[in-house]
Nucleic acid binder design. Structure first.
Lengths: 148, 148
DNA sequence: CCTATTATCTCGTTGAGCGAGATACACGCT
DNA sequence: AGCGTGTATCTCGCTCAACGAGATAATAGG
């Protein structure tokens, strides 16, 4: 018989799959591709962290080469989700800024899921929250470290 | 200031991203595409559950149409990861069976991460495990339900 | 300034996945 | 048995995301 911990491992995998499908639904409903959604999420993360995002850094974050990055930003710009802004200091750079409406669109779609997650977490005490937190940190670090 | 629960929400998202990247690394190291890896995982899940997997069901599970499914199975078969077996009862069906070596390959790659996760979980008591389990179930169900 | 380096874009190509339709088998129905 | 309807897979032609190679433009160092 398998270790009882395996149930949680499979649950975690199922969550990852569901979250992926959730993004994919958002993508296809808005005429976008999974990569475009990942790009918008990356851009919003950077914005929340108060960092500027250049075309190159965006492409690197998504594992695209320069040609693919240009095509991606073209696509997002054509759809009105981002703007290209030439770098102030270094005029070779192209800063990619998310449009407010894209942010609102994302919040409208992902908001309910986030709210529900927060609501679930409010049902736990400090020790239980610490367990969830440290398990997720552990898996994230293990997945990030394995194979470089 | 943001709710403290948001840290865990972002952690969960980070885990999903890392697991995705982990699969992607496995894919590119073995000359495969993300879809091929998802297909193999689906096939192994079915095998563990003792179910037969037809070409059609596999394609449906991955959201591919019939043409894409044929191409996918062609690709996997050419690489020696699966075999096509004509259905016994219904000769229109094509059962897709994973090759033992593909199973071994997957276990060699994902095994350490799974082992590490189980090891992490062994550090918690029953109440903490229950918290992790119910949180993951809750998020999985919420992500699955949102937008159909 | 002249050269090396860095950031982005252009061009031509590959290949995953799609839509439409062909093919092959299964299961009634009479 | 013979025929039509439904179902499973495959073939063909196409689109478009992403790649490799190389062009273009701006910065940084000697």
């Amino acid at each position: 018989m398998p270790a009882p911990e395996m149930e949680i491992v499979h649950l975690l995998r199922a969550v990852a799959v569901e979250l992926g499908l959730h993004s994919a639904r958002f993508a296809s409903r808005n005429g976008m591709h999974p990569t475009d959604v990942r790009a918008l999420i990356t851009l919003m993360d950077a914005r929340r962290a108060g960092e500027e995002m250049t075309a190159g850094r965006l492409g690197a974050a998504l594992g695209l080469n320069s040609a693919g990055t240009t095509a991606l930003v073209d696509r997002l710009e054509r759809a009105g989700h981002v703007r290209r802004v030439r770098g102030e200091g270094d005029r070779r750079k192209v800063l990619v800024e998310v449009d407010e409406r894209a942010v609102a669109l994302g919040q409208a779609y992902f908001g309910p899921l986030i709210d529900r997650s927060v609501e679930l977490l409010r049902g736990y005490d400090e020790r239980e929250l610490a367990a969830v937190r440290s398990f997720l940190r552990g898996v994230r670090d293990a997945a990030g470290r394995e194979g470089e």
